[in-house]
Design a protein around this nucleic acid. Structure first.
Lengths: 171, 171
DNA sequence: CGATCTATTTATAAACT
DNA sequence: TAGTTTATAAATAGATC
């Protein structure tokens, strides 16, 4: 949107694509920052870079911090509405998540989007857990993560196109 | 940005805030859509609404679908670079994720952002798993999820402000 | 590459319906 | 409360350094 209008399709020229990615990445971050500030909501963006590079991501912790602090400073009554005993709910919650069965159910239901995000989060955890080790080891882990995620993408795209589309249309 | 420039701070008037949220939510979605299309990357946004309403989110499955399909249609050689045997990596990966110890480590390292996102994802899975049950039950589960997430936010904001800030600054 | 500079295109705040 | 309009603020494509 500037000197010339551009078609909404993959930019073929790689250098132009990189420039556009960088510019728009910044713009998007700013937009999220403004939205969370102006409207008092928590938000984050997760963007995978091209498959030839390591994924670039922004969980945007600054925004989360700001909103958490705002909530902390809100009147007690407002908070108290949401702080009742959660034991039973937690029990049900735990029983239904983070197990192999649920994973299979999600797979069969075409919830690949969930799996991708979980993969990313697991990967990020690994990265953070190893941040104190030496750089070589960290680089190796990063490379491995990228392969892991990409492999999953390939597998899914080959096997589950229809389910993904179905899932997307329902949202 | 229009008839008048507005301050970058929480909009006090609730109706104005809601209008702005809706408009900017749409704008943000469009921006993500354009970025993923133009630059060939996967992306999604997760936005929690105010604490008085249920969270609004966009994992933007359409974008994911498009990028997955684009990758599927890419030349074989390009794909093959990323599809080598992942067994060893998977082994290491699994050993390090989805267990109570890692959760405690993450907590102690101030990775609250991870915990929030995992909570969201777990919640979303529950929602999808129950989508075939009756509406009353689904509503109940949704309410529970909101309480669960909000409770976690309260706990974190009361106990971990400093760690979160530290974590945010490092990113 | 990365930073700057504009001509344009977009996004959007406020007003209005 | 949800669209539509419009004047203005922002974002950004292409050029240049």
């Amino acid at each position: 949107m500037a000197r010339r209008k551009i078609k909404q399709e993959l930019i073929s020229n790689e250098s132009k694509r990189k420039v556009t990615f960088k510019k728009r990445k910044g713009g998007l971050l700013k937009k999220i920052d403004e939205l969370t500030t102006l409207c008092g909501v928590m938000g984050c963006a997760i963007i995978y870079n091209t498959f030839n590079n390591r994924p670039e991501i922004w969980p945007s912790p600054p925004e989360l911090t700001r909103v958490l602090n705002r909530f902390k400073e809100s009147p007690e009554e407002e908070r108290d509405k949401y702080t009742m005993d959660q034991k039973i709910l937690l029990g049900r919650h735990i029983s239904m998540s983070s197990n192999a069965l649920e994973r299979e159910i999600k797979k069969n239901r075409g919830l690949e989007v969930d799996l991708i995000l979980n993969e990313y989060l697991a990967g990020k955890s690994m990265e953070d857990l190893t941040c104190l080790e030496d750089a070589k080891e960290l680089d190796l882990l990063l490379e491995e993560k990228i392969k892991l995620i990409t492999d999953k993408i390939v597998t899914m795209s080959l096997k589950s196109k229809e389910v993904i589309v179905k899932n997307a249309n329902e949202k």
